[in-house]
Amino acid sequence: MSLALFIEQLLNGVQFGLMLFLMAAGLTLVFGVMGLINLAHGSLYMIGAFICAGVAAATGNFWIGLAAGVAAAAAAGAIIEVTVIRRLYARDHLDQVLATFALILILSEGTSMLFGPFPLYLSRPDSLAGTVHLGFGFNYSLYRLALIGFGVAVAIGLWMLITRTQLGVRIRAGESDREMIAALGVNIKALYTVVFALGAALAGLAGALVGSIQSVQVGMGEPVLILAFVVIVIGGIGSIKGALVGALLVGVIDTMGRFLLPRLFDLLFEAGRATDIGAAIASMLIYMLMAAVLLLRPKGLFPAHG
């Protein structure tokens, strides 16, 4: 194992973590402000990826596709919020889980009706093809590096939005006392729609960006959704900072676990199956992390409400 490989895996972990952050930020905002558990968040990720792939294929330009994907996810989020989600805020978590589970079925099957059963391919933009030299004879994929840049930029942008703008003030106020800000004359319904659409746009952005390093297919959102839930539970539900820390933890631990554990098991045990066992345990690692965090800090690392 060379140092270059190690650094490459570490960067992959950071990149994965930042993409998870885009997903988790929306989930945690929606939960923090509206108290809603949204399983259909992964479907918005899928919509972003499909629209991006479709538009990029039609126009031949990745960036137009990306913009279209984000816009489509935001629009889908706003429509879903107004038609369905709005009726769920006052319900218990069980109803929310079920209704958004139903939305997953509808959106997944709907997508497969529209785009057919086969995966789409989204190629990365030409300007970001190839690798970049990072010194010490080490090359890294330019596109993945750009994803890291994107992730950091969005994290900063989101932080600015929450702390520095009028909308951010309202979002934070909505988190602490929704009746009060409604009484102060803020249109709480519109605020909820905006927050939901913002979360949807972030999910769509993640889907469109990741779409070109994976295949774009129905059901692609579900594994990511579950990881995003792990992230926000670790970070503390409702906390953007928690989502960032949790996402990086999950991204790096998952990637490094898959990379290192099989090798470690190979060294420790002689049996031929050691690598497989290492790989199997590596895939469970983040769930163990989540269980451990919940046991030590039942409200996550950065509890949002006291």
């Binding site: 978590h93 579950i226 792990v230 539970v233 539900i237 469970m284 769930y287 163990m288 989540m290 269980a291």
Partner: peptide
Amino acid sequence: IFFIMITLAFAQMAYY
């Protein structure tokens, strides 16, 4: 919600 998520996480652990 934490209960929902942690039971899901244990099942995912077994699944993977």
